[in-house]
Amino acid sequence: MDGSVARSVQPGNTLYRLRDEGDLIELSRGVFRKADAPAPTRPDLLAVSVRAPLAVVCCVSAAEVHDLTDEIPGEIQIAVPRGQRPPRIDYPPTEAFRFSAPTFHLGLAAVEAAPGENVRIYDAERTVVDLMRLRGRLGEPLALSALRRYLQRRGARPGQVIAFARELGVLGRVRAAVDAVIAE
């Protein structure tokens, strides 16, 4: 454990003794970090990614990372491929979504959660489309606000948003929303 996050590999008593002595910080059950390691900028995302390495940060959690919302999710939202069992993580609180396996890789990116330690996350374009796809569950105002913020930023790629919408089967809804926001 040279500064990075590690899963529990030593006997439990040793890890908890090191934690109690202040040498380790416990990020989540079985996930420890050296106390003198550089502070993680996103410790909750880091803990979840260690516990669920194949999962991808998505939806409101991804929107917050990409500065597409001011909302701070009460749970870390992650996606797993449909057919795969979602992880059960109590802390930090986590909500799992099951996304289609054939399109699971679309828009896959990474964000640095601690110096030199990356977490899998969907890029801003995929995040906007996912929020539009799940607007009945997550809220239409959130989805439209994220789309508006995305389209107003320098370097926005509305063509990529439309391409992801086509791949994910929500082209009509997303195209109408993009047209409406651009017309404002």
Score class of each variant (00 low, 15 high):
1 M>Y: 15
1 M>K: 11
2 D>Y: 13
3 G>P: 04
3 G>N: 03
4 S>V: 01
5 V>L: 08
7 R>C: 03
8 S>G: 07
8 S>K: 07
11 P>R: 08
14 T>C: 01
14 T>R: 06
15 L>F: 05
17 R>N: 08
18 L>G: 04
19 R>Q: 08
20 D>P: 05
20 D>T: 07
21 E>T: 06
21 E>Q: 07
23 D>Y: 10
24 L>R: 02
24 L>T: 11
25 I>G: 02
27 L>Q: 03
28 S>A: 14
29 R>H: 05
31 V>C: 02
31 V>D: 05
32 F>W: 10
33 R>I: 05
34 K>Q: 12
34 K>E: 14
38 P>C: 08
41 T>F: 02
41 T>V: 08
41 T>E: 01
41 T>W: 06
43 P>D: 02
44 D>L: 02
47 A>W: 12
49 S>D: 05
52 A>T: 02
54 L>T: 00
57 V>S: 02
58 C>E: 15
59 C>D: 15
60 V>F: 05
60 V>D: 02
61 S>V: 07
61 S>Y: 10
63 A>Q: 06
66 H>E: 00
67 D>S: 10
69 T>Y: 06
70 D>S: 11
70 D>Q: 04
71 E>P: 00
71 E>F: 08
71 E>D: 13
72 I>V: 14
72 I>T: 07
72 I>P: 11
73 P>G: 09
73 P>M: 10
76 I>W: 04
77 Q>W: 02
77 Q>Y: 08
77 Q>I: 00
78 I>E: 00
84 Q>M: 09
85 R>V: 14
87 P>W: 10
87 P>E: 12
87 P>R: 05
91 Y>P: 02
93 P>D: 00
94 T>L: 06
94 T>N: 13
97 F>G: 05
97 F>K: 08
97 F>I: 04
98 R>H: 11
100 S>L: 06
101 A>K: 10
103 T>E: 06
103 T>R: 12
104 F>Y: 14
105 H>F: 09
110 A>V: 13
110 A>W: 11
111 V>K: 01
115 P>K: 00
115 P>D: 00
116 G>M: 04
118 N>M: 01
119 V>L: 01
119 V>E: 03
121 I>L: 04
123 D>P: 11
124 A>K: 14
126 R>E: 07
126 R>T: 06
126 R>N: 12
127 T>P: 04
129 V>Y: 13
130 D>S: 10
130 D>T: 10
132 M>F: 11
132 M>E: 14
133 R>A: 15
134 L>D: 15
135 R>L: 00
136 G>I: 01
137 R>K: 15
139 G>P: 15
141 P>K: 08
141 P>S: 09
141 P>L: 09
142 L>C: 15
143 A>V: 07
144 L>E: 12
145 S>E: 15
145 S>C: 00
145 S>V: 07
146 A>S: 14
157 R>M: 05
161 V>L: 12
162 I>M: 06
163 A>M: 09
164 F>W: 07
164 F>M: 01
166 R>E: 15
167 E>N: 12
169 G>H: 11
170 V>A: 10
171 L>S: 01
173 R>N: 02
174 V>A: 09
174 V>R: 09
179 D>K: 05
180 A>I: 00
181 V>N: 03
184 E>D: 14
184 E>P: 12
